[in-house]
């Protein structure tokens, strides 16, 4: 299986990079040192954006710039399935796709395709990922002001929410801690990458000493982390914060922001998640501002 956490100098194409989010993200990614070697937008072939050549198809782009380590997609939600298919068929094994509101059926088909091609997918509905030391800024995470929130360090920050990926990194920075990998996994029902997938890979990441997960109500991805910690597959310290207690005061079966943030029956309640994480040995922050202290204790 392909790696989710790529190396410094990795080369990318940007699908849909000429659109609103793509064209605003591109200069910021390039400034950061990330190598975006080509863009793909049907009908825009031949243009050059920020010095990056644009092609009509992924295959045309790769014929010109050679195989790449990944594709960063800014395609709109109903085009994501097609964009993923095109990238996989061109032999790309790593895809990050940002669109919010991708139909869940498409995500199920995408997950199946990605598996068939032995590839990996971050997202959909991810703001992106950042590694300061590796000069990787992939997607639109903290696009306006990356340096405000992210400083180089040893802590991985994993979050369903893009803005809380940045806020958690900022909180660590304000408390003298830096970040190795900051990854928004997205808050969809069946994302391509989960907390568990990343924590397993971070076990072998020399840069990372401990991880923080920002979880929220709904789904079972936090519970899966508890299982992995309990079974010893994850041995580096994990600190967790789970948001969404107040939603228990509101009607059930309501979606809060993210598609996966929904409580159906007893599953997905924040206090239940905290309990199973605590039982597994994960340090759970009751208050968001306590996260840095727990991390500092864990890596002492």
């Amino acid at each position: 299986m392909a790696k989710r956490l790529l190396d410094k100098g990795a080369r990318f194409i940007g699908q849909g990079i000429t659109g609103f989010e793509g064209s605003r993200s591109l200069p910021k990614m390039l400034e950061f040192g990330t190598q975006i070697v080509a863009g793909v937008t049907p009908g825009k072939g031949g243009q050059v954006l920020e010095g990056v050549p644009i092609f009509n198809t992924v295959k045309e782009a790769l014929a010109q710039v050679g195989q790449v380590d990944g594709s960063i997609q800014f395609a709109p939600p109903l085009r994501v399935l097609g964009a993923v298919q095109e990238a996989l068929e061109a032999g790309i094994k790593w895809i990050l796709t940002g669109a919010e509101k991708v139909p869940t059926k498409d995500e199920a088909i995408i997950n199946s395709l990605v598996k068939q091609h032995e590839a990996v997918l971050i997202g959909p509905n991810t703001a992106g990922m950042i590694n300061v030391a590796k000069e990787l800024k992939l997607g639109f995470l903290a696009v306006a002001d990356t340096n405000k929130a992210f400083t180089e360090g040893e802590i991985a920050v994993l979050s369903k929410s893009g803005s809380m990926t940045a806020e958690t990194s900022l909180h660590l920075k304000n408390n003298g801690l830096g970040v190795s990998w900051a990854v928004c996994v997205g808050g969809d029902i069946i994302p391509g990458t989960t907390f568990g997938d990343l924590l397993l890979e971070l076990e072998a990441d020399p840069q990372t000493k401990a991880s923080v997960i920002f979880g929220e109500l709904g789904g079972t991805y936090e519970e899966q982390v508890a299982e992995l910690v309990k079974s010893g597959k994850i041995s580096k310290p994990v600190v967790a914060f789970i948001a969404g207690d107040f939603t228990l005061q509101l009607p059930k079966q309501v979606q809060f922001g993210h598609a996966g943030a929904i409580i159906e029956g007893e599953r997905g309640k924040p206090d239940h998640k905290r309990q199973v994480l605590r039982d597994a040995g994960v340090k759970v922050a009751e208050n968001f501002d306590d996260i840095a202290d727990l991390v500092a204790q864990a890596i002492k």
Partner: peptide, 8 residues
């Protein structure tokens, strides 16, 4: 503003 921030 924002799903995760609103919950927090």
């Amino acid at each position: 503003s924002g799903g995760g921030v609103s919950l927090t």
